[in-house]
Design a protein around this nucleic acid. Sequence first.
RNA 1: GUGGCCGUAGCUCAGUUGGUUAGAGCGCCAGGUUGUGGCCCUGGAGGUCGGGGGUUCAAGUCCCCUCGGUCACCCCA
Length: 426
Amino acid sequence: MSSPPRFQAPTGTLDVLPPASARWEQLLAAFATTAGRAGYGLVINPMFEDIGVFLRGIGEGSEVVTKEMYEFRDKGDRHMALRPEGTASVARAFIQHRPGLPFKAWYATPAFRYERPQAGRYRQHHQLGLEAFGVEDPEVDIEVISLAVEFYRALGLSRISLKVNSMGDETCRPAYVELLRVYLSQRADRLCDEHRTKFELNPLRVLDCKREECKSATEEAPALTAHLCEPCRIHHSAVLSGLDDLGVGYSPEFRLVRGFDYYTRTTFEFAAEALGTAQNAAGGGGRYDGLVESLGGPATPGIGFGLGIERLLLACDAEGAMSESTSGLDAFVIDVVGGRSATLITHELRAAGLRVDRAFDGRSMKSQMKAADRSGAAVAVIIGEEEAAAGVATLRPLRGEHEQVKVPRAEVAEAVRRMGRVEARP
RNA sequence: GUGGCCGUAGCUCAGUUGGUUAGAGCGCCAGGUUGUGGCCCUGGAGGUCGGGGGUUCAAGUCCCCUCGGUCACCCCA
């Protein structure tokens, strides 16, 4: 019947179909709840922007921007790009609309990066994130980090580790980078092949290098956290003590260098320890006090957090968290007298707030019963010749110990509710 | 962008040293059971063997190219 598919999802993209998509719904609902409870409102943003938003926002020192961005010219010859992450365009919207401060927002968005796909890495992935603009107080850093922790916990994930660092600011970072540059130049021969010649470009990257040579060469390297200016030092220690006070476990990690240029002061990253794959970052974020200004807005501090849905679900799989649930249908209507009764009854039951499906195409009772069984519904509502003549419906429980009963048409909704409630569904 | 491994039915796979009309299990549809799902039995639908080219009397099987998947590097969610 079918020839080989002419079209398929582009490399590195994913189709998420039911029933697997049910977990996406749960995940989104859980995130909306966590963020909403803390006063963060949903922001819906374009998936593409003038490319400058990302070049100036995320920065040209980031490979996500220089090598991986989907860029194009539209029919008006505007140079656009698909968003590679969420924060820069939320910042752009903040500048454009000037909402009152603090501006606390959350988002769910696809993100696009042209890379070779592998476990937990796609060309289109989906991010959940939240941002707080206009607050310099370290207490908001603690809020953002703890909301992330709370979200992981809400999903039932336990093997998530947290690393925290500070990137300093424009006062203390340049001096530190120079210090690191000198340190590295004295040990250049011990660095990995790539960084031996390129460490000058971005010395911070060497700290993050996974190769053994770089790791051992930087073991004794000066830490930025030890060279922060006084305001950054006070900020950083307030964040750490706040996490302590909330009982949030973390490890300080002076090697933690995140991929976007906009970070200042607090940066953090969550790793899913249950994932044995190379891509185990389950989320991360940090403070970006210079971002709004670099996009042409008023100097406004900010901090945010983002995570990738696909990767988070892999972590859930690895931990056995958030397993797929059944359909949750309350009833399945079977009609062997033409199908119109099913139309009327499903309509009534749905209006009564029940979740109800049915079969079409006038199939045999046996076939409809099979469909009812497969649907996961708790109860089959059967209309045959007898029921149609008598103005009743037969209710047959599909799980559990109830007896099959006949009820008047007007009482079907109530009877379905009764039958479904008593049987605890797994 | 670089490298390893892998592409046979919707899914998981078998297919001998190249040898007739390519198989199984699960799933799907129908029947056994003309008013009852799950278990069982029977039957059916479903494949241009990822695509293209080549070698050969003969290719799912060998060779080349290509597309896709997967894992790793790199980078990150």
